[in-house]
């Protein structure tokens, strides 16, 4: 234990206990939500991309962010530089496509996952269940602001 002795005229009259200084300045009765980093990850799904009949196509990007820990992460999505942001971790996004030569609307699944260590992965998955080639006919610019959290668990 560290401390300070109070000395008066050569006689010890008291001892004030002092905690050892470390980086934990305060504590609480409860674990707080602790965010260890924030960063951005982007992905482009280009117009003209083709997905063969019955096949799947994954567009993906990776980003180094936060501590290497199994931690929760939270995302704010932006599409095509809109002024509106979407608070979510997973999106089913409508996209203009041609199935063969027939113009219609398809859906692309977009999500962020902790991939390994401190690497996160943003991916967009198009599943073509049609019997014709699908061509994506609109460009999608995806920007995601990711906030990572220290896991409240042991590791």
């Amino acid at each position: 234990m560290q401390g300070v002795y109070l000395v008066s005229l050569g006689t010890t009259i008291g001892f004030i206990s002092m905690a050892r200084t470390n980086r934990y300045l305060q504590n609480t009765d409860f674990i707080l939500l602790a965010s260890d980093d924030v960063g951005n990850i982007t992905l482009n799904v280009p117009s003209g991309s083709t997905i063969p009949a019955g096949a799947n196509k994954v567009f993906e990007s990776f980003q180094d962010i936060g501590a290497s820990a199994a931690a929760p992460l939270r995302c704010i999505f932006n599409f095509n530089n809109s002024s509106e942001y979407v608070i979510t971790n997973r999106v089913l996004y409508s996209v203009s496509v041609n199935v063969g030569s027939f113009p219609t609307t398809g859906s692309i699944e977009i999500s962020v996952e902790r991939y390994s260590g401190n690497i996160i992965r943003l991916y967009a998955l198009y599943q073509n269940s049609a019997s014709s080639t699908v061509t994506i006919t609109s460009n999608i610019d995806i920007q995601v602001k990711v906030r990572t959290f220290k896991t409240p668990f042991s590791s």
């Binding site: 980086r23 934990y24 300045l25 305060q26 504590n27 609480t28 009765d29 409860f30 674990i31 707080l32 939500l33 602790a34 965010s35 260890d36 220290k150 409240p152 668990f153 042991s154």
Partner: peptide, 19 residues
């Protein structure tokens, strides 16, 4: 009740941001 975990000695850590 209080939450007791292996991180109970790290409730407030100046390395982190608290929302």
């Amino acid at each position: 009740g209080d939450i007791t975990t292996p991180r109970s000695d790290m409730l407030f850590d100046t390395d982190n941001l608290y929302l």
